[in-house]
Structures are given as structure tokens and as C-alpha cells.
């Protein structure tokens, strides 16, 4: 029997500054303990979707103006970021936003600002170092000066400290070398399995996302245009063309195709 989804987005409409309509009827479901990917070109509205869930939207003068968002059956679209975080949702915002002037360890400790009974900060810190051994080596370095990969690990580790049930990851692979991406995604799937954290993964790197998540949504200009299992999506000719960068024949694209792809992509975003 299928369990209830941990998160349900029901046909939401989102506006910034009361006039800029960015999401025009988006519905997404995340199964409890599942990983779901959200794909789409730049400007499609992926980050806005995540901010609607985490409540950060309100701090950018945005609002969910229609539809609803439910987390474990409770409506959260009117709640503050603080309340939503307390319920067990954490967003890792795009761009590796470490606290630049704090050390790596201080960054991680900030995630534990809400003290819980029975769990010491030390234990939680050890858990983060268990998943990210590299961070332990860099613990006393100022976060603004460690490498991009280490910064990405720091922000995921920091998010882990809040004890999330659902983690919203915004383009964790952006700007990282393939080796590092591989390492970080291994850790993320490990976290998912061992800590039973559900994940909504936003990516422009569709190939990667479809490998990690069994189910994915595709977004274009504020609407969900596709929603299917990753297996099916991988075989979809449009996805192959626009997101995976290969033609039907599986070979490299001709110059004309690439140009067409770029044109289409520009139009999309």
C-alpha cells in the first residue's frame, strides 16, 4: 500500500511584489522517504518553487496567491520560514551560501541553533563529520576560503544539523568538477538512505538528477510540463534533446541541431 506523500503541492500560483506572476499552477508530490527531481532551464521557476515550500519566498516579497502546500498533512504555505524549519524542512539555497567569515565548524554549528532534548551538538557534529570526513579536516578554516566542493559540503552538512525530514537542494552540482559532483551525490544518496531524509532535488544537470531520483518533474516558464519516472523521461526525445544534450540516434549533435537547441533554450528561459 502506498503511504501518504510527505509533501503535496496543490496547483500553486506564486507572485513576487504582488504583480510578477512566476508560478502558474504547479503541482508536485514527494513520497515519504523518496527522492524527486525538478528539472528545467534557467528562470523556469525551480528556485521559486523551493522557496515557496521553505517559506523563504516571504522574505523576497513573494507569496503563494493560489493553491496550497501540505507537509505531512498540515498546510504550510502561510507559515513563516522559522515555523516551517521547525517542522522539519530545510532548503539548501543555490550558490553555496556559506557564512564566509565563520569557520567551517562554526558554519555547521549554526545549523544546530535550535537545541533539542537528548541530542548534543557534539553528537550531531560527529554525524556530519561521519558523512563528510573532508569537513573534519577543514573544520578550523574560514569557510570563505575553502574550495567550492567543500563549501557545498558545508552547506549540506549545516542543513543536516537542523534534523530535517525533507531537504530541498537547489542545484548542488553547479560549478563543480565532475569528480566532486560524484562524491557529493554519493553522500546525498547515503544521507537519504541512512537518515531517511526525503529529498526534492533541483538540477540543471538532468543526466545526474535522473540517475539519482526515480521520479522527476520538468518545468518550463512557471508550469510543470512533464512528470514521469526517470526511466521514461530518459527515453523521451524532448528531454534527450533539451536536457541530456543528445539526439535520437544517441550520437553527437550536428552543429545545426546545437544551434537549434540553443535557440529553443533561450526562448524557453
Amino acid at each position: 500500500m502506498a503511504t501518504d506523500p510527505i509533501l503535496k503541492i496543490n496547483n500553486i500560483e506564486v507572485k513576487y511584489h504582488e504583480v510578477i506572476l512566476v508560478l502558474k499552477g504547479v503541482s508536485i508530490e514527494i513520497p515519504d522517504g523518496g527522492i524527486v527531481a525538478l528539472l528545467g532551464a534557467n528562470g523556469a521557476g525551480k528556485s521559486t518553487t523551493l522557496k515557496s515550500i521553505s517559506g523563504l519566498l516571504k522574505h523576497e516579497d513573494g507569496a503563494v496567491t493560489d493553491g496550497s502546500i501540505e507537509f505531512e498533512g498540515v498546510r504550510i504555505d502561510r507559515k513563516s520560514a522559522e515555523e516551517i524549519s521547525k517542522m522539519g524542512i530545510v532548503q539548501v539555497i543555490e550558490g553555496r551560501r556559506v557564512f564566509e567569515h565563520l569557520t567551517v565548524e562554526e558554519n555547521i554549528k549554526v545549523g544546530a541553533h535550535r537545541r533539542e532534548k537528548g541530542v548534543s551538538v557534539k553528537d550531531k557534529l560527529d554525524k556530519v563529520y561521519h558523512y563528510f570526513p573532508r569537513l573534519k579536516e577543514k573544520r578550523n578554516e574560514v569557510a570563505g576560503f575553502v574550495s567550492g566542493g567543500e563549501q557545498q559540503m558545508t552547506v549540506v552538512g549545516r542543513a543536516l544539523m537542523t534534523n530535517p525530514k525533507l531537504m530541498l537542494l537547489d542545484e548542488p552540482s553547479m560549478g563543480l568538477a565532475p569528480m566532486l559532483i560524484h562524491e557529493i551525490f554519493n553522500i546525498i544518496t547515503q544521507l537519504h538512505r541512512e537518515e531517511n531524509i526525503s529529498i526534492l532535488l533541483v538540477e540543471q544537470n538532468a543526466k545526474l538528477a535522473l540517475n539519482v531520483a526515480p521520479h522527476a518533474y520538468v518545468m518550463e516558464t512557471g508550469r510543470i510540463v512533464m512528470d514521469d519516472s526517470s526511466e521514461t523521461l530518459r527515453e523521451n526525445p524532448d528531454i534527450k534533446d533539451f536536457y541530456l544534450g543528445m539526439t535520437d540516434k544517441g550520437g553527437r549533435k550536428s552543429f545545426r541541431d546545437v544551434k537549434h537547441y540553443k535557440r529553443r533554450k533561450r526562448w524557453l528561459s
Binding site: L56, A81, E82, S85, K86, V98, F99, H101, R158
Partner: peptide, 16 residues
């Protein structure tokens, strides 16, 4: 200190 560095990131961790 975190809020002084990056308010949005602090908010994302549920800091008031």
C-alpha cells in the same frame, strides 16, 4: 554572526 554574514542563508536554517 550568521545573520550578519548572509541573512537569507540564516533564514533557510530557521533562524529567527
Amino acid at each position: 554572526q550568521a545573520t550578519a554574514d548572509d541573512e537569507m542563508a540564516a533564514l533557510s536554517l530557521g533562524i529567527s
